[in-house]
């Protein structure tokens, strides 16, 4: 049961390749695998904690102020991770920059709180947050890996060939193009597996 929830977040309802949610950080922070991975983990942190909190207090919140309350909860955890990263992971904090506070408006987080956590128990909500977070992290890492490989000829910051790569992939247009082909790839694999 729990494993199924996780797998659903990673594969069947992958936030990026299937639902196309949270595209801004996806495109902006994936110029290298490690950046994409860190952004994914920061989002997962917020997803798990906000899902947990929402599932615990959903019954106490009047219906009409539901969304504002969720937004406050999410913004709180976003600020917590923002402050923690500024203090203990300053380099990554500097590269991700403005996209850490922008986790607040990442549709995935609010969507999971509203559509899953508000209706389910605490433990399932944590697992759901973890699943969606991992699906997001996986997609971001893959995209970062591909862009780094093509754009710098490097894997995790280690250069494979000592020349300039296809710089386009590090730049903005490359983000769109790489994501387009990764989505095609993801759909092809999914189709084959379903058959």
């Amino acid at each position: 049961m729990k494993i199924q929830i996780i797998l659903k977040g990673i594969f069947k309802e992958n936030p990026i390749f299937v639902l196309m949610l949270g595209m801004c950080p996806t495109l902006a922070t994936t110029s290298s695998a490690i950046n994409g991975f860190s952004m994914g983990l920061a989002t997962t942190f917020v997803l798990v904690l906000s899902n947990l909190t929402v599932s615990l207090i959903a019954k106490q919140i009047p219906d009409k102020v539901r969304i504002p309350s969720y937004v406050v909860i999410i913004a709180t955890f976003v600020t917590v991770i923002d402050l923690l990263m500024a203090g203990y992971l300053p380099d990554i904090h500097a590269t991700l920059g403005i996209f850490i506070p922008l986790i607040v408006v990442n549709c995935i987080v609010l969507a999971r709180a509203e559509s899953f956590a508000a209706k389910n128990g605490a433990s399932n909500s944590i697992v759901d947050g973890l699943g969606s977070g991992l699906g997001f992290t996986l997609a971001l890492s893959l995209l970062g890996f591909a862009r780094e490989l093509l754009g710098e000829y490097a894997i995790f910051g280690t250069k494979l060939i000592e020349t300039d790569g296809m710089v386009l992939f590090i730049l903005a247009p490359g983000a769109f193009i790489a994501l387009a082909y990764l989505t095609v790839l993801f759909n092809m694999i999914k189709k084959r597996l379903i058959k």
Binding site: K59, I61, P62, D63, K64, T76, L83
Partner: peptide, 25 residues
Amino acid sequence: MAKVSSFKNMLLTLLATTFISSALL
């Protein structure tokens, strides 16, 4: 499931959430 909204409990909920989150932050 969720509580019925009245002005009093809406105000209280919002105040409580913002207060707790400010304290935590």
